[in-house]
Amino acid sequence: MIMVSDEVQLKNGGPAMVVTGYASGMVECRWYDGYSVRREAFREEELAPLLAGQSQLAG
Protein backbone atom coordinates (compact mmCIF):
# COMPACT_ATOMS: atom_id res chain seq x y z
CA MET A 1 0.00 0.00 0.00
CA ILE A 2 1.27 3.45 -0.88
CA MET A 3 1.43 5.87 2.05
CA VAL A 4 1.63 9.68 2.31
CA SER A 5 5.28 10.84 1.94
CA ASP A 6 6.26 7.73 -0.08
CA GLU A 7 8.22 8.33 -3.27
CA VAL A 8 6.51 6.82 -6.31
CA GLN A 9 6.75 6.77 -10.07
CA LEU A 10 4.26 5.93 -12.78
CA LYS A 11 4.63 2.29 -13.81
CA ASN A 12 5.18 3.38 -17.41
CA GLY A 13 7.93 5.83 -16.38
CA GLY A 14 8.14 9.48 -15.52
CA PRO A 15 9.51 11.64 -12.73
CA ALA A 16 9.90 10.62 -9.10
CA MET A 17 6.94 12.01 -7.15
CA VAL A 18 5.99 12.35 -3.48
CA VAL A 19 2.56 11.21 -2.32
CA THR A 20 0.84 14.12 -0.56
CA GLY A 21 -2.58 12.63 0.14
CA TYR A 22 -5.67 10.78 -1.01
CA ALA A 23 -8.89 12.25 -2.38
CA SER A 24 -11.89 10.63 -4.08
CA GLY A 25 -10.04 7.31 -4.32
CA MET A 26 -7.10 8.92 -6.11
CA VAL A 27 -3.50 9.30 -4.94
CA GLU A 28 -2.36 12.93 -4.94
CA CYS A 29 1.28 13.44 -5.94
CA ARG A 30 3.68 16.37 -6.28
CA TRP A 31 6.98 16.70 -8.07
CA TYR A 32 9.35 19.38 -9.32
CA ASP A 33 9.63 19.56 -13.12
CA GLY A 34 12.69 21.82 -13.20
CA TYR A 35 10.61 25.00 -13.31
CA SER A 36 7.81 24.63 -10.77
CA VAL A 37 6.11 22.19 -8.42
CA ARG A 38 3.51 20.15 -10.28
CA ARG A 39 0.65 18.18 -8.77
CA GLU A 40 -1.73 15.61 -10.10
CA ALA A 41 -3.87 12.72 -8.90
CA PHE A 42 -3.44 9.15 -10.16
CA ARG A 43 -5.08 5.79 -9.56
CA GLU A 44 -3.01 3.69 -7.15
CA GLU A 45 -2.74 0.94 -9.81
CA GLU A 46 -0.80 3.36 -12.04
CA LEU A 47 1.93 3.95 -9.44
CA ALA A 48 4.93 1.96 -8.26
CA PRO A 49 6.91 2.76 -5.10
CA LEU A 50 10.51 3.82 -5.60
CA LEU A 51 13.03 1.79 -3.66
CA ALA A 52 15.79 3.39 -1.59
CA GLY A 53 18.57 4.45 -3.92
CA GLN A 54 16.23 5.03 -6.88
CA SER A 55 15.21 8.52 -5.79
CA GLN A 56 15.86 11.40 -8.17
CA LEU A 57 14.56 13.89 -5.60
CA ALA A 58 17.47 13.90 -3.18
CA GLY A 59 20.53 15.81 -4.29
Rank of each mutant, 00 (worst) to 15 (best):
R38N: 11
S5Q: 10
P49H: 08
E46G: 01
S5H: 06
I2T: 04
G13I: 05
L10G: 08
E7S: 11
E7M: 05
G25R: 14
L10A: 08
D6I: 07
R30S: 13
T20R: 05
I2D: 00
E46S: 04
A48D: 03
M26T: 08
W31S: 02
E28F: 04
A16V: 03
A52L: 10
G21N: 01
G53H: 09
D6F: 06
V19P: 08
A52T: 12
M26I: 14
Y22N: 14
P15H: 10
G59Q: 13
Q56R: 15
V37F: 10
I2P: 00
L10Y: 12
S36F: 09
G21H: 06
L50R: 05
A48H: 00
R43G: 11
C29N: 00
E7A: 15
R39P: 01
S55I: 14
L50M: 13
V8T: 00
L57E: 01
E45F: 04
D6Y: 10
S55T: 06
G59P: 05
G13F: 11
S5N: 15
I2S: 00
A16F: 08
M17T: 05
D6G: 10
A41P: 00
G13L: 06
G14Q: 07
G34A: 04
L47C: 03
I2R: 02
A52C: 07
V8Q: 03
A52Y: 00
Q9S: 03
A41W: 00
K11S: 08
D33Q: 12
D33I: 06
E46C: 01
E45T: 10
G53Y: 11
Q54R: 02
A48Q: 12
V18N: 05
E45K: 12
L50K: 14
V37M: 03
R39M: 11
E7G: 00
L47Y: 01
Y35S: 14
A23G: 01
D6Q: 05
G14H: 15
S55L: 12
